[in-house]
């Protein structure tokens, strides 16, 4: 009887130990990261994100990206966001302001709580995504690309680069909050700098003809942030060259404008990887401070400069990176 009891106990012990060992050896599944973008124009952010994650030590198998692109269609964006949420990712990376606002709305509607990292949003506090830069306090954190506040600085920099400019046509989108805020910031700067600015709402279908009509010598175009602006960039660049008007945008990708000053999509995506890593490591997005871009790039398109025949400020001639071709190659 004693022997049977002993055998029973030893068997139970062995089975328990084997069971526990297998449980403890449970394979780690990759972290599912949802990525949503309004259009493929922001794909460079995804590339930067992946690169950043890789450099932080997340390799293939550690994370899995579920990417949803709305192909610049706001209606499609809703569907894509729904699909993404249904897939229950560990966290979501939004590649712009519109995506972030949409996803916030959806999650609030559906009472879903998934941490969200926004990889570059202009004025996230002002548009209600976060409560505070240091303590965002919700499910959202990420990069404030500062493009709203930077609008005034870009005006100053544009003027320093081409001191001959006397009037700045400010292209903004009346329907986009970020764009409007940027305009306000620009106006304040212009006042401080005693520069003359002429706002131009791109949501007005006839804005181009109006703009063309008002152009004078030593005028320039300053493009403010807004996802619609991004899609118009190439068109505006062509407009600038056609009318021999220097233009300044935000991104170096905006091939065709004379200069740009802002955080690149790649850099924003790359920087967002830090937030993703922090959240994967167990940090709450509410406690992760929103960051400004690590790096702003000041780019001058050499071809456009030559085409426009514009004289640049010699003091600043060594500061920007010059793009020598439309393919976006950058010379240091």
């Amino acid at each position: 009887m004693k022997t049977k009891l002993y055998l029973f106990l030893v068997t139970i012990l062995t089975v328990s130990i084997i069971f526990l060992t297998f449980i403890s050896n449970d394979n780690k599944t990759p972290v599912k990261i949802g990525v949503v973008m309004i259009g493929d124009g922001r794909h460079e952010k995804l590339t930067g994100l992946k690169k950043g994650m890789q450099e932080l030590g997340y390799h293939e198998g550690d994370v899995k990206y579920v990417v949803k692109s709305a192909h610049d269609d706001e209606e499609v964006l809703d569907t894509k966001i729904n699909e993404l949420i249904k897939g229950k990712p560990a966290l979501i990376v939004t590649l712009g302001g519109i995506e972030t606002l949409k996803i916030k709305e959806k999650m609030e509607q559906q009472h879903i709580k998934i941490p969200v990292v926004f990889a570059g949003v202009a004025a996230p506090k002002e548009i209600g995504i976060i409560k505070d830069y240091r303590l965002p306090g919700g499910l959202f954190t990420g990069i404030n690309n500062y493009h709203t506040n930077l609008s005034g600085k870009r005006l100053e920099l544009f003027h320093d680069l081409v001191p001959s400019i006397q009037r700045f046509h400010i292209l903004y989108d009346e329907n986009i909050e970020v764009s409007k805020l940027s305009l306000e910031n620009t106006k304040q700067a212009a006042e401080k700098l005693s520069l003359k600015i002429l706002p131009c709402n791109v949501s007005d279908p006839s804005f181009k003809s109006k703009l063309k009509g008002s152009l004078q010598k030593n005028d320039a175009l300053l493009i403010l942030p807004g996802f619609r602006m991004e899609s118009l960039t190439k068109e505006m660049a062509q407009f600038s060259r056609d009318n021999k008007v220097p233009a300044m945008g935000i991104y170096e990708q905006e091939a065709g404008v004379l200069a740009s000053y802002g955080a690149s999509f790649f850099d924003q995506g790359y920087q967002a990887a830090r937030f993703v890593s922090l959240i994967i490591q167990g940090n709450s997005p509410a406690e992760i401070p929103v960051e400004l871009p690590d790096r702003f790039r000041f780019i001058v398109n050499q071809d456009v400069k030559n085409e426009l025949g514009i004289e640049l400020n010699k003091n600043l001639i060594h500061i920007p990176d010059f793009i020598i071709s439309e393919e976006g190659e950058v010379s240091p």
Partner: peptide, 19 residues
Amino acid sequence: QLQKIIGKISSLRQDHFSY
């Protein structure tokens, strides 16, 4: 600006839960 340095230190992935 320290956020890049601090951000790198904070977010650098460590094996085996080291920090």
